Structures are given as C-alpha cells and as structure tokens.
Simulated assay, not measured.
Amino acid sequence: MLPLKSARVTYVYGVKNGRYAKVYHTGIDLASAETSVYAAVSGTILEARYAPGNGADPAGWGNYVILRTLDHRYDIINAHLADVQVSQGLTVDEGTLLGKMGSTGNSTGPHLHFEVRKTPWIDRDDIDPASFLGIYNRVGQVEKVSSTSIKNIVLCHPGPDERAAGYLADCLKAPICYLANTTQELLHLAERVYVIGSSEKAFAKTVNIVGADRYDTCRKVLDICQRE
C-alpha cells in the first residue's frame, strides 16, 4: 500500500544532484494533506529515532523509521517525520501507523522521503521506490501502474550509456532505471525490456542494444526510434 493517502510526488527518484552522497536522489518524496504515514508492507521496525545534522546516513533524516520486510530482502526508510509512533523491534502489519509526515532533519518543507534499499546495504543498494510501490516515478498526483500500462522499460548502467537510454526512454515514453536498481516485479509489468550498452539478459523479454562503442550504440537507438 502507499505510505500516504491522497499523496502526490514532489521529487522523483534518480534526479542527479551533486549535494547528495550518491550524486542522485535515492528516494522519492511524497506529500499529502493527510499527514499520517503508514507501513507500506508488513515487517519489523529496524530503527525508529531522530538523526540530526548532515553527513552520512542517517544524518539529516530527522525523525525516521526503517522497516525491514518480513523476507529480509529490503529495508524501507521513512524520513523527515514530525513524530515517530513505533519502536525498534516491533513487528507491524501493512497499514500500521508509523508517524506523521513532517519536515525534521535536512528538509526544505513537509514531505515524506520514502526510500527502499536492498539488504545488506552496499554501495548501490537502493532500488526504484516508485516501482516498489507500483506507481509512476513522476511529479504530480500519485498514479498507480496497472499490469497493462507499461509497454516498454529501458535499463542501463550508470555512465556513458545513460544519454542513449534517456533518448530511447523519451522516444518510447517508457520508464528508465539502472540495471542494479530495478526489481523483477517491475520487469514483469513490461511487454519489452530494452537494455542499453550491455549484453545482460535482465529478463526473458530483453532486447539488448550494444554497439562497438557508445556512438554506435546511439546510432542503434536512433534506428529503433525511427521505426517506432
């Protein structure tokens, strides 16, 4: 379920910004007139406390709750809360009240920073939280993704192939995600998965676009766009 009712997306996942430790926004920011924040899934409360200041996580999160899923695969971070209404070690059901949306910590206004990380935490451990929630990663009123609403998904590794991947995603009006940060749940929604600059088979429906160099890869992407 969604952690906020009647929510809108105010800042999307993956936006590049040099002030972030990973140089991109690792979560999705949600806001709502209804400030209650609920557990998106069932799990165990790993941490529930206040973290002041700036620097390495969790510094800057203010009041936050980390919920570990029951299968121990993901940790869900709910940050900048006005207050916390659960305690560490508690097992909660989906829909349990975790706290109230706020603007504590390093925050510019009331919102919920919602982030999903694979366990154990390593360098590129975050995944697309929008796909985890089953919503579109775009600013505006939250819109659920239905099983028939995604025709294509574009994947790539961080680096020189991002420009070609972004161009193809714009052409196909498709979501784009890093290979390491996607989930099988998201891939199952698509009719076709394009992987740019890599021969990895992310999914059975994968179409790999790999050139002799990145310029050749761009040319192949342009060819696809002209056919669509």
Rank of each mutant, 00 (worst) to 15 (best):
L98N: 06
K118A: 03
I76A: 01
A51N: 11
G95M: 07
A39D: 07
N78C: 13
P110H: 03
L112C: 09
S36A: 15
D123G: 03
L70Q: 13
L90H: 07
I66L: 08
G105H: 02
S107V: 05
A56K: 14
G95P: 02
A31C: 12
N78L: 14
D125Y: 03
S42M: 02
W121L: 07
Q141R: 11
Q85N: 14
H80G: 06
S103A: 15
I153M: 12
L133K: 04
D123S: 09
G102F: 06
G105I: 03
S87V: 08
E94F: 00
H72W: 01
D128N: 15
G134V: 06
R49L: 11
V65P: 02
S149H: 05
D71Q: 00
G134S: 07
I122K: 14
P52C: 10
T91P: 00
S146D: 14
A130L: 01
D75Q: 04
K100F: 10
G55W: 09
R73N: 08
W61Y: 15
P58I: 12
K100E: 14
N137S: 11
I127N: 00
A56P: 04
A51T: 13
I45C: 04
G134E: 02
G105E: 05
S131M: 11
I66F: 03
H80W: 05
G99D: 14
V41H: 02
D93H: 13
G134I: 04
G102T: 09
